[in-house]
Design a protein around this nucleic acid. Structure first.
Lengths: 230, 230
DNA sequence: GCAAAAGTGTTCGTACTACACCCATGG
DNA sequence: CCATGGGTGTAGTACGAACACTTTTGC
């Protein structure tokens, strides 16, 4: 029907992490990179007998030692034909949210370095990866307002002030503490634990936990989570 | 680095149309289809030197004679390795909204038939196209609530009752006419025209038009369009 | 004058906004 | 007793929900 198609299929992973009031993304540097050896998103070519989802998981594990169980498909980049100067490559980008304190990153296989980069200190990346990352950040911001994804970025038990800070940081907005707390608690998907923060300054703060089960029930009932800001 | 990758890249188009109070989708039947010759979404393999976006446009034009200027990327289907039994094929699905009255559909190139199918009378489709369509419908419903996409499906000038009906049909919900009208008009993105409906039953109805410019201004100002229902 | 669809206003309740002070602990 | 963050209540407002009758035309 047509000349033989010669297009490669790759996947890229945008892994966001939150720690100490800052949003980070996981980047790698290839060992045998193209001349300039820019930092890049983890990723690589999909194998013939492997689903796209498995491909991202595998590449991420291989390159950074990070294992993630939930990836969301972000977008497929294939409009710029020369985005990879070597071949025609389209890339299916996936993003994930993790708590960095639970992970041990490690440069593996063909990778030279792995590192968390603060989101507003991103260098020029390989290929169109700056563009991909930009789109991922937009999606993250949007999702934060209508899905309780903040909890994936935090430890199992967390302070309300951390959650609050996470929203401020990602959305780059001030929020009103009292109203934010009321709003979040009103959904009933965040519960107090018996524990208190080990931080020994100021009044001891209760630790909270996210009730995933409750959240799923509410979704079934059609209640939709939404956080707005002034 | 690895064995030669052998994955084909296709695009598929989900073209939604609205007419006479019904939502339709455009399907084709291949001439030399696989045995069963199921109906299918328009689409095909991407050329080596062609962007994904151009590929959907070309395929749609070739197969159905329909020209669309705005496609939105829906999702990339590539987790089911055997979704096409002949080869490993991943498909980047795009969707578009059109006013069918402005189009002349015509089976072209390798296509035997082209037809609008009402959304709740979809037969079993080729490959995983039922799944793709399902996802497209979900996205359409979601988008309808927070973007004024209804206007892409209607003629330039339309009746309020048509708009109202469009929302009811797509969302499969009753809506409250008075509140709906107030809400839509409150955004200021829909204007009265001087014209009246040619329908000669009941009180003559004003025709309205969508003010795209005004909408873009409001977006810049950060106002976000949202329609909720009881 | 009746059938058929278009057009419209008000009340009520809920949910978001804005705002400032007290609390519990460690040093 | 002071410094540090944690924790809370209330009043005003704006927006969505519910609801039914009048208007204009063709036949």
């Amino acid at each position: 029907m047509e000349n033989l198609q010669n297009i490669r299929v790759a996947v890229d992973a945008i892994v966001f992490g939150y720690q100490n009031g800052q949003l980070y993304v996981l980047l790698i540097q290839q060992k045998f990179g193209s001349a300039e050896s820019y930092w890049a998103l983890p990723g690589g070519l999909v194998k013939n007998d492997e689903s796209l989802n498995d491909a991202v998981k595998r590449e991420l594990k291989e390159e950074t030692n990070v294992e993630v169980n939930y990836f969301e498909q972000l977008f497929t980049f294939g409009d710029d034909i020369t985005r990879d100067p070597r071949n025609r490559v389209i890339s299916v980008a996936y993003f994930a949210l993790v708590d960095p304190s639970k992970l041990e990153i490690k440069a593996d296989s063909d990778v030279d370095k792995v590192q968390w980069f603060q989101i507003n200190e991103i260098p020029k990346l390989a290929f169109d990866h700056n563009l991909i990352l930009k789109k991922a950040i937009e999606r993250l911001k949007a999702k934060l307002s209508y899905e309780p994804i903040g909890f994936d970025l935090l430890p199992k038990e967390f302070l309300f002030s951390e959650l609050e800070n996470l929203y401020c940081t990602i959305l780059e907005k001030e929020i009103e503490r009292r109203n934010f707390r009321k709003k979040i608690l009103s959904f009933g998907i965040v519960e107090e634990t018996e524990n208190y923060s080990p931080i020994k300054t100021g009044r001891p703060a209760k630790l909270f936990r996210f009730n995933k089960l409750k959240y799923k029930e509410l979704i079934k009932e059609g209640i939709h989570f939404e956080i707005k800001f002034a």
